[in-house]
Computed example of a mutant assay.
Amino acid sequence: MTIRLACAAALSLALALPAAADNKPWRVSLTGDRFDGASWHTGVLIELAPGWKTYWRMPGDSGIPPEFTWTPSRAAKVDVQFPAPARYVDKGGETVGYLQDVIFPVTVTPERPGALDLKLGLFFAVCKDVCIPAQAEASISLGLDQRDPSGSARVEAARAAVPAAGDAITGAAIVSDGGKPALKLTLKERPDDIFVESATTAYFHAPVLSADGREARLAIGSLGDAAKLKGQTVTITYLIGGKGYDQTLALP
Protein backbone atom coordinates (compact mmCIF):
# COMPACT_ATOMS: atom_id res chain seq x y z
CA MET A 1 0.00 0.00 0.00
CA THR A 2 1.40 3.45 -0.88
CA ILE A 3 1.70 6.18 1.73
CA ARG A 4 -1.04 8.10 -0.08
CA LEU A 5 -3.47 5.15 0.19
CA ALA A 6 -2.44 4.53 3.79
CA CYS A 7 -3.13 8.19 4.59
CA ALA A 8 -6.59 7.97 3.01
CA ALA A 9 -7.39 4.86 5.01
CA ALA A 10 -6.13 6.47 8.20
CA LEU A 11 -8.23 9.58 7.53
CA SER A 12 -11.39 7.48 7.15
CA LEU A 13 -10.63 5.80 10.45
CA ALA A 14 -9.79 9.09 12.18
CA LEU A 15 -13.06 10.70 11.08
CA ALA A 16 -14.98 7.70 12.38
CA LEU A 17 -13.48 7.88 15.87
CA PRO A 18 -14.10 10.43 18.65
CA ALA A 19 -11.42 13.08 19.10
CA ALA A 20 -8.60 12.22 21.48
CA ALA A 21 -6.73 15.50 21.69
CA ASP A 22 -4.33 14.34 24.42
CA ASN A 23 -3.02 11.54 22.18
CA LYS A 24 -2.33 13.64 19.10
CA PRO A 25 1.35 13.88 18.13
CA TRP A 26 0.80 17.40 16.77
CA ARG A 27 -0.46 20.85 17.72
CA VAL A 28 -1.29 23.77 15.39
CA SER A 29 -1.48 27.47 16.23
CA LEU A 30 -1.05 30.92 14.67
CA THR A 31 1.85 32.80 16.18
CA GLY A 32 3.29 36.29 15.74
CA ASP A 33 1.44 39.52 14.92
CA ARG A 34 3.96 42.08 13.67
CA PHE A 35 2.39 44.92 11.63
CA ASP A 36 4.58 46.84 9.18
CA GLY A 37 2.06 49.57 8.39
CA ALA A 38 0.50 47.72 5.47
CA SER A 39 0.55 43.99 6.32
CA TRP A 40 0.68 41.66 9.30
CA HIS A 41 3.32 38.96 9.58
CA THR A 42 2.12 35.88 11.40
CA GLY A 43 2.84 32.18 10.97
CA VAL A 44 1.33 28.71 11.08
CA LEU A 45 3.18 26.82 13.81
CA ILE A 46 3.02 23.01 13.65
CA GLU A 47 4.54 21.40 16.73
CA LEU A 48 5.26 17.68 16.47
CA ALA A 49 6.16 14.98 18.96
CA PRO A 50 9.76 13.66 18.76
CA GLY A 51 10.39 11.61 15.63
CA TRP A 52 7.32 12.86 13.74
CA LYS A 53 7.47 14.66 10.38
CA THR A 54 5.09 16.74 8.28
CA TYR A 55 5.18 17.52 4.56
CA TRP A 56 6.41 20.31 2.30
CA ARG A 57 4.23 21.58 -0.58
CA MET A 58 5.77 18.79 -2.72
CA PRO A 59 5.56 15.87 -0.29
CA GLY A 60 7.85 13.32 -1.96
CA ASP A 61 7.02 10.22 -3.96
CA SER A 62 3.77 10.02 -2.00
CA GLY A 63 2.13 11.90 0.83
CA ILE A 64 -0.12 14.87 1.52
CA PRO A 65 0.95 18.52 1.20
CA PRO A 66 -0.62 21.00 3.64
CA GLU A 67 -3.82 22.74 2.53
CA PHE A 68 -4.55 26.13 4.14
CA THR A 69 -8.10 27.51 4.20
CA TRP A 70 -8.25 31.11 5.39
CA THR A 71 -11.24 33.05 6.71
CA PRO A 72 -10.41 36.68 7.53
CA SER A 73 -13.09 38.73 9.28
CA ARG A 74 -12.90 41.23 6.41
CA ALA A 75 -11.38 41.32 2.94
CA ALA A 76 -7.65 40.60 2.96
CA LYS A 77 -4.99 38.84 0.90
CA VAL A 78 -3.28 35.96 2.71
CA ASP A 79 0.05 34.59 1.41
CA VAL A 80 1.86 31.53 2.82
CA GLN A 81 5.57 30.81 2.40
CA PHE A 82 7.42 27.51 2.85
CA PRO A 83 10.82 27.25 4.55
CA ALA A 84 13.34 25.07 2.72
CA PRO A 85 12.59 21.39 3.45
CA ALA A 86 14.68 18.26 4.02
CA ARG A 87 14.49 14.82 2.42
CA TYR A 88 13.81 11.69 4.48
CA VAL A 89 14.12 8.11 3.26
CA ASP A 90 12.50 5.12 4.96
CA LYS A 91 10.83 1.85 4.00
CA GLY A 92 7.86 3.82 2.62
CA GLY A 93 10.06 5.74 0.16
CA GLU A 94 11.23 9.35 -0.01
CA THR A 95 9.35 12.09 1.80
CA VAL A 96 10.08 15.82 1.69
CA GLY A 97 9.20 17.99 4.65
CA TYR A 98 10.08 18.90 8.21
CA LEU A 99 11.07 16.97 11.34
CA GLN A 100 9.34 18.17 14.50
CA ASP A 101 8.47 21.89 14.65
CA VAL A 102 7.98 24.12 11.59
CA ILE A 103 6.58 27.62 11.04
CA PHE A 104 5.06 28.62 7.69
CA PRO A 105 5.35 32.44 7.46
CA VAL A 106 2.09 34.18 6.53
CA THR A 107 1.58 37.73 5.24
CA VAL A 108 -1.90 39.23 5.69
CA THR A 109 -2.67 42.38 3.69
CA PRO A 110 -6.12 43.94 4.26
CA GLU A 111 -7.95 45.77 1.50
CA ARG A 112 -8.67 48.63 3.90
CA PRO A 113 -6.93 49.77 7.11
CA GLY A 114 -8.10 48.34 10.42
CA ALA A 115 -7.77 45.32 12.69
CA LEU A 116 -9.08 41.89 11.70
CA ASP A 117 -9.51 38.36 13.01
CA LEU A 118 -7.98 35.52 11.01
CA LYS A 119 -9.17 31.91 11.13
CA LEU A 120 -7.30 28.94 9.68
CA GLY A 121 -8.56 25.52 8.66
CA LEU A 122 -5.60 23.22 8.01
CA PHE A 123 -5.59 19.80 6.35
CA PHE A 124 -2.18 18.15 6.52
CA ALA A 125 -0.48 14.89 7.48
CA VAL A 126 2.10 13.75 10.01
CA CYS A 127 4.29 10.67 9.75
CA LYS A 128 6.45 8.48 11.93
CA ASP A 129 5.98 4.74 11.51
CA VAL A 130 2.63 5.46 9.88
CA CYS A 131 1.10 8.42 8.05
CA ILE A 132 -1.80 10.14 9.82
CA PRO A 133 -3.92 12.74 8.00
CA ALA A 134 -4.95 15.53 10.33
CA GLN A 135 -7.27 18.51 10.48
CA ALA A 136 -6.81 21.54 12.70
CA GLU A 137 -8.23 24.98 13.31
CA ALA A 138 -6.52 28.06 14.69
CA SER A 139 -7.26 31.76 14.96
CA ILE A 140 -5.55 35.02 15.82
CA SER A 141 -6.61 38.65 16.33
CA LEU A 142 -4.45 41.10 14.38
CA GLY A 143 -4.34 44.72 15.45
CA LEU A 144 -1.98 47.68 15.45
CA ASP A 145 -0.47 46.79 18.84
CA GLN A 146 1.90 43.83 18.88
CA ARG A 147 0.94 41.27 21.54
CA ASP A 148 3.29 38.41 20.64
CA PRO A 149 6.86 39.68 20.09
CA SER A 150 8.46 36.27 20.77
CA GLY A 151 6.15 34.62 18.23
CA SER A 152 6.97 37.36 15.73
CA ALA A 153 10.69 36.72 16.22
CA ARG A 154 10.16 33.02 15.45
CA VAL A 155 8.19 33.92 12.32
CA GLU A 156 11.01 36.15 11.08
CA ALA A 157 13.51 33.35 11.70
CA ALA A 158 11.30 31.02 9.64
CA ARG A 159 11.02 33.64 6.90
CA ALA A 160 14.81 33.77 6.72
CA ALA A 161 14.71 30.02 5.92
CA VAL A 162 12.42 30.56 2.90
CA PRO A 163 14.41 29.92 -0.31
CA ALA A 164 15.79 32.99 -2.06
CA ALA A 165 16.10 33.51 -5.80
CA GLY A 166 19.08 31.58 -7.16
CA ASP A 167 21.03 31.08 -10.38
CA ALA A 168 23.20 28.01 -9.72
CA ILE A 169 21.42 25.89 -12.36
CA THR A 170 22.59 26.72 -15.87
CA GLY A 171 20.93 23.96 -17.89
CA ALA A 172 18.23 21.28 -17.73
CA ALA A 173 17.26 18.40 -20.00
CA ILE A 174 15.35 15.11 -19.92
CA VAL A 175 17.72 12.21 -20.60
CA SER A 176 17.68 8.42 -20.44
CA ASP A 177 19.54 6.58 -17.66
CA GLY A 178 19.53 2.83 -18.23
CA GLY A 179 16.41 3.16 -20.33
CA LYS A 180 14.57 5.18 -17.67
CA PRO A 181 13.91 8.93 -17.79
CA ALA A 182 15.90 11.33 -15.65
CA LEU A 183 16.33 15.07 -15.30
CA LYS A 184 19.89 16.23 -15.96
CA LEU A 185 20.88 19.55 -14.40
CA THR A 186 24.06 21.53 -15.06
CA LEU A 187 25.26 23.38 -11.96
CA LYS A 188 27.65 26.18 -11.05
CA GLU A 189 28.37 24.61 -7.65
CA ARG A 190 27.61 21.44 -5.68
CA PRO A 191 24.22 21.46 -3.91
CA ASP A 192 23.33 19.58 -0.74
CA ASP A 193 19.97 18.47 -2.21
CA ILE A 194 17.58 19.33 -5.03
CA PHE A 195 13.76 19.26 -5.13
CA VAL A 196 11.82 19.63 -8.38
CA GLU A 197 8.16 20.51 -8.90
CA SER A 198 6.15 20.41 -12.13
CA ALA A 199 2.52 20.60 -13.19
CA THR A 200 2.62 16.87 -14.02
CA THR A 201 2.42 13.82 -11.76
CA ALA A 202 6.19 13.27 -12.09
CA TYR A 203 8.26 12.76 -8.96
CA PHE A 204 11.95 13.64 -9.24
CA HIS A 205 13.96 11.43 -6.91
CA ALA A 206 17.04 12.38 -4.90
CA PRO A 207 19.85 13.72 -7.10
CA VAL A 208 22.91 11.70 -8.06
CA LEU A 209 25.81 14.14 -8.37
CA SER A 210 28.90 13.91 -10.55
CA ALA A 211 32.30 13.77 -8.87
CA ASP A 212 32.85 17.51 -9.32
CA GLY A 213 29.29 18.40 -8.24
CA ARG A 214 28.61 20.24 -11.50
CA GLU A 215 26.01 17.80 -12.82
CA ALA A 216 23.02 16.18 -11.15
CA ARG A 217 20.67 13.49 -12.42
CA LEU A 218 17.27 12.93 -10.81
CA ALA A 219 15.39 9.76 -11.73
CA ILE A 220 11.79 10.48 -12.73
CA GLY A 221 8.98 8.34 -11.34
CA SER A 222 5.17 8.38 -11.22
CA LEU A 223 4.92 9.49 -14.85
CA GLY A 224 4.06 7.03 -17.60
CA ASP A 225 5.30 9.16 -20.49
CA ALA A 226 8.32 11.43 -20.00
CA ALA A 227 7.31 13.31 -23.17
CA LYS A 228 4.67 15.04 -21.04
CA LEU A 229 7.50 17.06 -19.50
CA LYS A 230 8.54 18.58 -22.84
CA GLY A 231 8.14 22.36 -22.66
CA GLN A 232 7.03 22.20 -19.02
CA THR A 233 8.10 24.89 -16.60
CA VAL A 234 9.60 23.40 -13.44
CA THR A 235 10.43 24.97 -10.10
CA ILE A 236 13.74 23.77 -8.72
CA THR A 237 14.57 24.29 -5.06
CA TYR A 238 18.09 23.45 -3.98
CA LEU A 239 20.15 23.68 -0.80
CA ILE A 240 23.73 24.97 -0.71
CA GLY A 241 25.44 25.25 2.65
CA GLY A 242 22.11 24.77 4.38
CA LYS A 243 20.52 27.75 2.61
CA GLY A 244 17.62 27.30 0.17
CA TYR A 245 17.35 28.78 -3.32
CA ASP A 246 14.65 28.67 -6.01
CA GLN A 247 14.85 28.75 -9.80
CA THR A 248 12.19 28.38 -12.47
CA LEU A 249 13.24 26.80 -15.77
CA ALA A 250 11.50 25.68 -18.94
CA LEU A 251 12.41 22.17 -20.09
CA PRO A 252 13.37 21.78 -23.76
Rank of each mutant, 00 (worst) to 15 (best):
R154N: 08
R154C: 02
R154T: 02
V155L: 02
V155S: 03
E156N: 06
A157F: 04
A157M: 12
A158G: 04
R159A: 11
A160C: 12
A160D: 09
A160V: 05
A161N: 15
A161G: 12
A161E: 15
A161S: 14
A161Q: 14
A161M: 13
V162N: 02
V162H: 02
V162A: 03
A164S: 11
A165C: 13
G166Q: 02
D167G: 13
I169K: 05
I169R: 06
I169N: 05
T170H: 05
T170K: 05
G171M: 01
G171V: 01
A172H: 02
A173W: 04
V175E: 08
V175P: 06
S176G: 09
D177A: 15
G178K: 07
G178D: 08
G179F: 05
G179W: 05
K180T: 15
L183V: 08
L183R: 02
L183E: 10
K184Y: 10
K184F: 04
L185Y: 00
T186G: 02
L187W: 00
L187N: 00
E189D: 10
R190I: 05
R190M: 10
R190T: 11
R190L: 09
P191I: 03
P191D: 04
D192Y: 11
D193I: 11
I194N: 00
I194G: 03
F195C: 13
F195N: 12
F195T: 13
V196L: 04
V196E: 00
V196C: 10
E197C: 14
E197T: 12
